[in-house]
Design a protein around this nucleic acid. Structure first.
Lengths: 190, 190
DNA sequence: AGATATGATTGCAAAATGCAATCGTTTAGC
DNA sequence: GCTAAACGATTGCATTTTGCAATCATATCT
């Protein structure tokens, strides 16, 4: 076997960018902030998926889509893309899957009939409730590991990081360089 | 385009678990901690991928694998699985890809010849250096959004969350229930 | 009306994934 | 020493997911 944490507790490379210290040591995946965030989130998402996948028979995209529909009944596919960081194809397929399984339906509430206008069915709401109960429980188990103060701090930090990451994504890897900035468009993510 | 932050800055649902307040309002994807972590990490990973994908021609798994090899030259495939949260098949294929592209090679340094013993080639190191330079730059752009104190705080919080998430994953969605705990095995993630 | 724009969907090729079967090597039992 | 079991790694193949062009339907513009 093997440990998983080969970093000293207080100092993980986060606080000292190497460039400043002149040390310039190799990048460590395990200490790289995005990877640390990724690992935590993926573990939880996997656990949640292990529940709703077999139980309700839909994919991760479909769950994300369902969660968005639940919060904004009558959304269009495009709005789901924007809210969920999914591309239009995933969303279209997620909706199709949800509709086929009877968890959602296309409603024609809008005047503009190009828009999809999706909402959850009765069983869709039931599924959503079950899944989000588990999601909440997992969230509580997770946040139970830190104090209320830390949680509040984390909240504010994540808000900042979220904004920063949006900026980074918008600029692309060429950074500030004015390079036409690629066609852009929502990358899938997941 | 569109904002991406439709939450009130200070209070995102994180600090008040609803159950306590009796409010019991619907789960909001955008405020759910694992999703918030996920979104940040995915944006950065996408940007990084948009660089090394076209430039060096390998996949996300291959990059993760490369980063691990770089830090522990001579690792076996199994060790890469454990360190990188990848399953043995992804790793095997990632190694194959890296070897085919000339970025890594199998070395027979070990006495036990069942183990792979991978290390980076010259061009592998060059690629790694280039990619990790960008990775570091992105990390700095990201962490530049918060103060040093916040960063230190974040570091310690994430360590706790990482441990908690490992526990949650190990227990599975059935939570504490003694249910044989599923075969487990590293889910891929990515 | 015809041309153009926009939201959504579909078809199909390419890539990623999951899993059983397999190969080569080492270890344990006899 | 020889055989069987264990182990790490790899491969083949079916399934799923993804990316993208093409398409359909509706709405808007001239």
């Amino acid at each position: 076997m093997q440990s998983f944490s080969n970093k000293t507790p207080g100092q993980t490379g986060l606080a000292a960018p190497a460039a400043e210290t002149g040390m310039d040591e190799k990048l460590q995946l395990e200490s790289w902030l995005p990877y640390r965030l990724f690992r935590i989130s993926v573990r939880i998402a996997d656990v949640l998926n292990a529940f709703y996948g077999p139980r309700f028979g839909f994919s991760r995209s479909a769950w994300r889509t369902m969660a968005i529909i639940a919060n904004r009944p009558g959304v269009s596919a495009k709005e789901i893309c924007q809210a969920g960081g999914l591309d239009q194809f995933s969303v279209s397929r997620a909706i199709k899957q949800l509709v086929e399984l009877g968890y959602a339906q296309r409603q024609n509430g809008r005047t503009d009939r190009r828009y999809a206008a999706i909402e959850l069915s009765k069983s869709g709401w039931a599924a959503f409730t079950e899944i989000s109960d588990l999601a909440r429980r997992l969230d509580q188990e997770l946040t139970g590991a830190v104090s209320q103060e830390e949680l509040a701090m984390l909240d504010s930090i994540l808000t900042k990081l979220d904004n920063a990451s949006a900026g980074i994504m918008a600029r692309g890897w060429r950074g500030g360089a004015r390079e036409k900035s690629e066609p852009d468009g929502q990358k899938t993510g997941d």
